[in-house]
Amino acid sequence: MTIVYRTAGAWGAGQGYNLTALQADGNFYDLDQRIQAIEDNPPEPVNISNITVVGTQMTVILEDATEFGPFTLPQANFRPSVVATVSTVTYDPVLGDANGYKRCTNAAGCAVTVPSNSEVAFPVDTEITFRQAGDGAVTFDAPTDVTLNGLLGYLNQTAFEGATVTLKKVATDEWDLIGLLAEDVTA
């Protein structure tokens, strides 16, 4: 049976007057039969044939060769897992320090000099965390071609014993200082 419409639309002209009870029942019966046919004989899905991953990009390929993607896969940030002690009064970070945790134990403090990218090519997004594990502050300095972004009103050094400060590389020769910095009381 064909569905009967009352008005004109995308389905055609329609009959132009109210449906009879028989026509309304016929429409419901027709739709019920179509739904029942789908329930009795569901269409076969197009299954996944293959999934490819290149770097952080994943592509899903179906059996009919349809492709979805590429999708960027999430990645966990590297968590510093190696704790190292720095007992000297000066320290120049090296590539092996990337994403590391340094405990500065010298009672006189430790002056950390952040290298320029031409000296040590840390990747952007690198983090190095320093902890003041003794009486002396950990101070951060850099050559003139390197920018250290501290906090206005604070010094580029740890505030007190137990304070931690993370250097985060945000551009080729630019680092942010994040953590417990000492307040600048001279200003």
Rank of each mutant, 00 (worst) to 15 (best):
P43L: 05
E44H: 12
P45R: 08
V46S: 03
S49M: 12
N50K: 15
I51F: 08
T52H: 07
V53I: 12
G55L: 02
M58H: 11
T59A: 01
T59Q: 04
T59P: 06
I61P: 13
L62K: 13
L62T: 11
D64M: 09
D64V: 05
T66I: 03
T66H: 08
E67W: 04
E67V: 08
E67N: 08
F68K: 04
F71C: 01
L73T: 01
P74F: 07
Q75F: 12
A76T: 14
N77W: 12
N77S: 15
F78E: 15
R79P: 13
R79C: 13
S81N: 15
S81W: 11
V82L: 11
V82E: 13
V82D: 13
V83I: 06
A84W: 05
A84T: 12
A84Q: 13
V86E: 13
S87C: 05
V89L: 09
V89Y: 11
T90R: 04
T90A: 03
D92I: 09
P93V: 00
P93F: 00
P93H: 00
L95I: 12
L95E: 04
G96S: 11
G96K: 10
G96Y: 04
Y101C: 04
R103L: 14
R103T: 12
T105N: 06
T105R: 02
A107W: 10
A107Q: 14
A108Q: 05
G109Y: 01
G109T: 03
G109I: 02
G109C: 02
A111M: 14
A111W: 11
V112K: 01
V114Y: 08
V114E: 08
V114M: 09
S116P: 06
E119M: 07
V120P: 08
A121F: 05
E127S: 13
I128R: 05
T129V: 07
T129S: 09
T129H: 02
F130P: 14
Q132T: 02
Q132D: 01
G136F: 05
G136M: 08
T139D: 09
F140Q: 01
F140K: 01
A142C: 03
T144Q: 08
D145R: 08
V146N: 07
T147M: 00
T147S: 01
T147C: 00
N149W: 06
G150S: 05
L152A: 15
G153H: 08
G153I: 04
Y154Q: 14
L155E: 14
L155G: 09
L155R: 15
Q157I: 02
Q157S: 07
A159E: 02
A159R: 03
F160W: 10
G162D: 07
G162H: 05
A163W: 05
A163P: 14
T164R: 14
T164A: 08
T164G: 09
V165G: 09
K169N: 10
I178Q: 12
G179V: 04
G179E: 03
L180S: 15
L180A: 15
L180Q: 15
L180R: 15
L181H: 11
L181K: 15
L181C: 13
E183R: 11
E183G: 03
D184M: 00
D184F: 00
V185G: 04
